[in-house]
Simulated scan of single mutants.
Amino acid sequence: MAQQDLDPYIDTIEFGPVEFRAIEWLEIPAVARLSRPSNVPDREIPQNLAQLEARLASCGLFPIQRSDESLRIVGYSR
């Protein structure tokens, strides 16, 4: 997909449409924690950050910062 084909907005439930260039960064944790009701412990789901990083790097659109705990995709730098 060419960059000019990308929609410049993302629709969010809480804030409505937001321009992509207004998003400073997006952080994906190595382990996603999904809360559950009735005092049931959170469900922990490991995420394959290496695979995600490789796919994002192949696009080459955004800088990527990696740590042991997360992968940060930098969308807009001030």
Rank of each mutant, 00 (worst) to 15 (best):
M1C: 08
A2E: 12
Q3A: 14
Q4C: 07
Q4D: 14
Q4A: 12
Q4M: 07
D5E: 12
D5G: 05
D5F: 12
D5M: 10
D7H: 13
D7G: 03
P8F: 03
P8A: 02
Y9R: 13
Y9T: 12
D11P: 00
T12N: 08
I13W: 12
I13Q: 14
I13S: 13
I13Y: 12
E14T: 10
E14L: 08
E14F: 03
F15P: 00
G16Q: 11
V18M: 12
R21A: 14
A22D: 15
A22N: 14
I23W: 09
E24I: 01
E24C: 00
W25G: 03
W25S: 10
W25C: 04
L26Q: 03
E27T: 13
I28C: 09
A30Q: 10
A30P: 10
V31Q: 10
V31S: 02
A32D: 00
A32V: 07
L34Q: 09
S35L: 05
S35I: 00
P37D: 08
S38N: 15
N39K: 08
N39G: 15
N39R: 09
V40S: 02
V40K: 06
D42C: 03
R43I: 06
E44P: 08
E44F: 08
I45Y: 08
Q47V: 15
Q47P: 06
N48A: 05
N48F: 01
L49G: 03
L49K: 01
Q51A: 15
L52Y: 07
L52D: 01
L56P: 01
L56E: 05
S58E: 14
C59A: 08
C59H: 07
G60Q: 04
G60Y: 05
G60K: 03
L61C: 07
L61Y: 14
I64F: 05
I64P: 02
I64H: 03
R66A: 05
S67T: 15
S67N: 08
D68C: 00
D68W: 02
D68G: 04
S70I: 07
S70F: 09
S70C: 12
L71M: 02
L71V: 02
V74E: 13
V74F: 07
G75Y: 11
S77K: 07
S77R: 13
